[in-house]
Each structure stands twice: as structure tokens, then as C-alpha cells.
């Protein structure tokens, strides 16, 4: 019986080594360990031995079974490993991948959204108002004299029925101040209209964002802080900003805001017309007459306001040479901004 066992083990090792598939393994296992296997019959023939020999032979049988199981396992793993290896393939990695179907935002929306985010993070709220306005909100309340040239048909679009198209979003500031008590920290983005013929730097329809802060103790220093904060977040930490005297009817003192040219870094180039500075928009401390028009005590409160042109920022930021391109909606232009806003 011992010889039979040894021969069987030798045979099993050869058969197991010859297995090629998971199925072969199952069959071989049945042959050597199953009910009809020699090993199984040897177990039942143990009683033919002297009782004293039985434990030793029983051990031999167990060892044989374990040996076969180990060999089967090892071979099975090798077969699996081989099939995994076989699943590897070589690829022409230069062929195009599947393009995504995502579209994209208009560059003006991208810039407007960035401006929104900057001011939201600075604690401002966003207020909106109508494009079609009355003279009070667009001119009178903003301290614009009745004979001021900006009220001309050549400058402002008027509608049948006496309304007009707002020339700046300061109108929203007036509407907010009429309804809400200070403190006020808002920006008002929106479309504005001026009777300019479309050309590389003008458009009869354009987008503006105005900021307004009204509280006790607001000074020109807060204006400077906010402007610099905005410039740094929007254009990068190396950007400088400045304000210089100007005139607007609704601010006193008034200023124009410049940022250092990000094309040349301030040394002077074509874009900044060799000045090193780029004009960003108008600003100033809210004129007491504006406060009077909306019923805010100008002795108690002070405030600042400034306005930015979204088209101008987009053109500066993306190096777009002509404002008219922005309203052509050419997919070759639009698709360039696909990755700009999440």
C-alpha cells in the first residue's frame, strides 16, 4: 500500500504540472482527492493493517493529501497569474481619447463670476436692478445736473413712454439705499447702455459692476483697501493699484482707479501706452447729495463707490483686441474659454 501511495503521488505531481486551465485543476482534484480516488480507497483499506501500524499509515495518507492540495493550489495560482498576464495588451497611446461633451461659459460671464466671487468672499452681497430705468434713479438721485451732457439723446438711449436704458448700475445703489438702512456692502453687476457706435473699445451694450459701501466711519482708506484687495485676488499678488483725482457728479471727492500693467509689470508697453498703468474704472466717496436723495443721514454715514467694466477686464485679462469679438459668439472664440470656469 505504501508503494501504491508513492507511485500515486509521483503521478499526481506530473498531472498537476500538466494542468492548463481552471477546469483541468477541478478534474485533477477529483481524480486524486475525490470519492473514487485511490487515496480515498486507501483510507478505507486502513483496517486491513495491524492496529499498531494504522496511525503511522494514517499520517502518511494525510501528508499525501496535504501535498496534493498544496500542489493543486500552487498550480491554480500559476494558471490565474498566467491568464492575468495574458490580459495585458499593447496600445497605440497616441490615438485620440474620448472627448468630453462639456460646453463652456462666455468670457464675460467668466469674468463677471470671478468678480462676484471676489466680492462675496470680501463680505459683499450682490444686488440687481432693472435695465430700463427712470431719470430719477439714473440721473437726478445721482446728483447729475439737469443740463448735464450725459442726459443727451446722443449719449443715452430713451424709450417711448419716458423711460431710458441705464447708463450705469449706480441706479441699483440708489434702489438699495431707498429700501435698506446702512450698513450696506453690495456690488451691483448688470448691463448698461450708452449711445456709442460699436468699435474696438466701445459697445452700446456693456456690463458693469459697481461696489457700494455705506457705514459709520467709512473713509477713502477703505476704498483703497478694497480696490487693492480686489486687484490682488483678480490679477495676482504683484499687482499695484492707485487712485487719482477725477470728476463724477455722484462722488465727492472722485477718482479714477488704475492698476499696474500686468503685461509689462509696470515698466511700460504698448498695452499700457508706455505708462505702466491701466485704467480700471471710476470711484469716489458718495456725494452727500446722493445720501440726501435717498434719505440717509450724511452727517452720520459716509460711503464709497466704484465701478468696473467687465468687458475691459476681460479684454485686459485675455488679451482680446476688439470688444466686438465678445458679441459675435463665434464658437472658435467661445471654445477657447471652455476650461476657465468650473
Amino acid at each position: 500500500m505504501q508503494n501504491q501511495l508513492a507511485a500515486m503521488l509521483q503521478d499526481a505531481a506530473l498531472k498537476i504540472a500538466a494542468c492548463q486551465t481552471a477546469n483541468d485543476i477541478l478534474n485533477t482534484k477529483a481524480n486524486y482527492l475525490g470519492k473514487k480516488s485511490l487515496l480515498n480507497s486507501l483510507y478505507s483499506r486502513m483496517r486491513e493493517l495491524e492496529p499498531s501500524e494504522r496511525p503511522a499509515f494514517g499520517n502518511l495518507l494525510n501528508e499525501a493529501r496535504q501535498k496534493i492540495e498544496a500542489l493543486l493550489n500552487e498550480r491554480n495560482n500559476a494558471i490565474k497569474e498566467k491568464s492575468w498576464q495574458a490580459s495585458s495588451r499593447s496600445l497605440d497611446y497616441t490615438m485620440p481619447g474620448v472627448p468630453g461633451a462639456r460646453g463652456g461659459y462666455h468670457p464675460l460671464t467668466i469674468v463677471k463670476r470671478e468678480v462676484d466671487e471676489v466680492f462675496l468672499s470680501l463680505g459683499f452681497e450682490i444686488a440687481e436692478g432693472p435695465d430700463i430705468e427712470d431719470e430719477f434713479h439714473n440721473f437726478d438721485a445721482l446728483n447729475t445736473p439737469a443740463d448735464h451732457p450725459s442726459r443727451n439723446l446722443a449719449d443715452t438711449f430713451y424709450l417711448e413712454g419716458g423711460k431710458l436704458l441705464r447708463t450705469q448700475t449706480s441706479t441699483v445703489q440708489i434702489r438699495v439705499m431707498e429700501k435698506h438702512k446702512p450698513p450696506i456692502r453690495i456690488i451691483s453687476p448688470g448691463r448698461c447702455y450708452r449711445n456709442d457706435k460699436p468699435d474696438p473699445s466701445h459697445s452700446p451694450v456693456f456690463t458693469q459692476v459697481e461696489a457700494l459701501v455705506v457705514d459709520k466711519g467709512i473713509s477713502m482708506s477703505d476704498l483703497k483697501d478694497t480696490l487693492q484687495n480686489f486687484a490682488v485676488i483678480m490679477f495676482g499678488s504683484q499687482v499695484k493699484s492707485r487712485i487719482r483725482p477725477h470728476f463724477f457728479p455722484f462722488t465727492e471727492p472722485s477718482a479714477e482707479m488704475d492698476i499696474s500693467c500686468m503685461v509689462c509689470g509696470g515698466t511700460g508697453c504698448r498695452v499700457c501706452k508706455q505708462s505702466g498703468w491701466l485704467e480700471l474704472g471710476g470711484a469716489g466717496m458718495v456725494d452727500p447729495n446722493v445720501f440726501d436723495a435717498v434719505g440717509i443721514d450724511s452727517e452720520l454715514y459716509t460711503g464709497f463707490a466704484f465701478g468696473l467694466g467687465i468687458e475691459r477686464i476681460a479684454m485686459l485679462k485675455y488679451n482680446i483686441p476688439d470688444m466686438r469679438i465678445l458679441f459675435e459668439n463665434d464658437l472658435r472664440m467661445l471654445s477657447q474659454f471652455r476650461g476657465e470656469l468650473q
Binding site: G103, T109, P204
Partner: peptide, 15 residues
Amino acid sequence: HLVAWGAYETLNYSF
């Protein structure tokens, strides 16, 4: 939503 469904945004005059 529309950008995710593959559309590009356009902006046209209000006129």
C-alpha cells in the same frame, strides 16, 4: 446644467 450638457454660452445685445 447646459454647459455640462455640452452647450456654449452666447451673449447677445438686448436690442
